[in-house]
Design a protein around this nucleic acid. Structure first.
Length: 427
RNA sequence: GGAGAGAUGUCAGAGUGGUCGAAUGAGCCAGCUUGGAAAGCUGGUGUACUGGCAACGGUACCGAGGGUUCGAAUCCCUCUUUCUCCGCCA
């Protein structure tokens, strides 16, 4: 979610950046700004009235104490009408805020300046290629045939007990799956990530927190009796751990990883590209997530990309890295690298991993912020040491000083950058 | 599933419907002190929105949401959650 004030102060930049994502609904931006203006005006009115009412209420108390009952009654009577006005104003404000919020979440994240303009996967930029394409013998089989031939995966059994898209892994197939999960987790641990085992069902608030709700409600499995959603990715529980949290700067970067099965309804998917393991309703994924300061996030994104590449190399896979174009990247991402492996049998590139920087987009929505370490390094004359970069943060953070007689900047919570990556390890 | 007791700031923990954004203590930060430290002393120490060039203000927040009242951390209702006991069960 973008911040209204950022939009207001950088309107042209926002328009220009959004165009890279082929977003052109400019009236929406004006709507948002105008709604925010209305909100401010009404809020000021309401708060002024409330301030008066508070003063009056105090006077009543004082007068009652002093025994001046009739004067107190007079003031009482006068406040009653103001109360009604305030309530109306507050109701209006709430309605406007809801509308504003609904419109705000329609705006995608601003793409990074390095993101190429484009509309289809063909416009993605190949950053690098590694290794040579394997050549297979004439009689080579695609994985769905191999899986059957060697009794690794039984798709029909999955259909029997659940439905299509729920494969049963057997024997060495199950063992391979377990080994890959273990391999990814171990590597992540070596790279400094804390391993988490997470709930596979989440509540509605979490769904909103990471943006699956309300838009992608139809893509998630839902348990009606308890109003819980099956997670479509570990990103949901891992990220929501930090909903409404203010972390201390010395805790950064936060590095978490976790394996979970993922559940996706994949409504609308069909055809050859869903064959075998290519598109499942339940699949396994190891996710790594970092939360860090804005000025460090892009460096860490590169590190995460290298981490993934290292894994692919260890597995002896030939791969390429793509920088996704504006049209192909996700709504919330500012920059996404996709890692693709060539499937010789299917004769196409398959996405096996993806690394994204969300900048403050999700942090804003989650209300995830951090607080600078005050006084840890008092000799530092440059408070930008751990400050947000000006490009993503408003200078007003610096202006607000509740304690001006001291010459240090007070710690201000700041939205955090969140990065994540996932491995679809079933290919 | 039933019964009871809780939920207050970073933590612990007070809080007769008005003087409560909230005592006190601890922690943390800064200053004084010291050769340096500890101790001691002094001061500071939440978040969001908002007015103002600023100085400095306003509003809201005591698990969440409603209600009563001129006025709610305090009274009422609903929900969430924690603990204790009982029941049931893999």
């Amino acid at each position: 979610m973008l911040q209204v004030n950022y939009i207001r102060e950088n309107k042209n930049l926002v328009i220009q950046r959004l165009s890279v994502k082929n977003f052109t609904d400019l009236p929406l931006l004006d709507d948002i700004l105008s709604l925010d203006d209305q909100r401010k005006t009404l809020q000021l009115q309401a708060e002024t009235l409330q301030a008066d009412a508070n003063t009056a209420a105090k006077q009543v108390g004082d007068l009652m104490k002093a025994g001046k009952r009739s004067e107190a009654e007079t003031i009482k009577a006068s406040t009653t009408s103001a109360k009604e006005t305030i309530k109306n104003l507050l109701d209006k404000i709430t309605a406007i805020e809801q509308t504003l919020q609904q419109k705000l979440v329609l705006l995608p994240n601003l793409p990074h300046t390095s993101v190429p303009k484009g509309t289809t996967p063909d416009d993605n930029e190949i950053v690098l290629s590694h290794g040579n394409q394997p050549t297979l013998p004439q009689n080579a089989l695609p994985h769905w045939d191999l899986a059957t031939k060697y009794n690794l995966i039984d798709f029909e059994l999955g259909v029997k007990i659940t439905g299509a898209g729920f494969p049963v892994y057997k024997g060495k197939g199950a063992k391979l799956q377990r080994a890959l999960i273990n391999f990814f987790l171990t590597e992540a641990e070596t790279a400094g990530y804390q391993e988490l085992m997470l709930p596979l069902l989440v509540n509605e608030a979490s769904g909103f927190g990471t943006g699956q709700l309300p838009d992608k409600e139809g893509q998630m499995y839902f348990c009606t009796q308890d109003s819980l959603y099956l997670i479509p990715t570990a990103e949901v529980p891992i990220t929501n751990l930090y909903r409404d949290v203010i972390v201390k700067e010395n805790e950064l970067p936060i590095k978490n990883c976790g394996y979970t099965p993922c559940f996706r309804r994949e409504a609308g998917s069909y055809g050859a590209h869903v064959r075998g393991l290519n598109r499942l309703h339940q699949f396994d994924k190891v996710e790594i997530v970092q939360i860090t300061q804005p000025e460090k996030s892009y460096q860490l994104l590169e590190e995460m990309s290298l981490h993934v590449q290292h894994l692919l190399q260890k597995l002896g896979l030939q791969y390429r890295v793509l920088r996704l174009c504006g049209g192909d990247m996700s709504f919330a991402s500012a920059l996404t690298y996709d890692m693709e492996v060539w499937s010789a049998a299917q004769k196409r590139w398959l996405e096996v991993s993806s690394v994204s920087n969300f900048e403050t987009f999700q942090s804003n929505r989650l209300k995830l912020r951090y607080k600078a370490n005050e006084g840890k390094n008092p000799t530092s004359a440059h408070p930008q040491r751990q400050r947000p970069s000006p490009s993503t943060h408003r200078s007003r953070h610096f202006r607000k000083q509740p304690n001006p007689q001291r010459h240090k900047h007070p710690p201000m919570p700041t939205p955090l950058h969140r990065l994540h990556n996932h491995f679809i390890n079933t290919h």
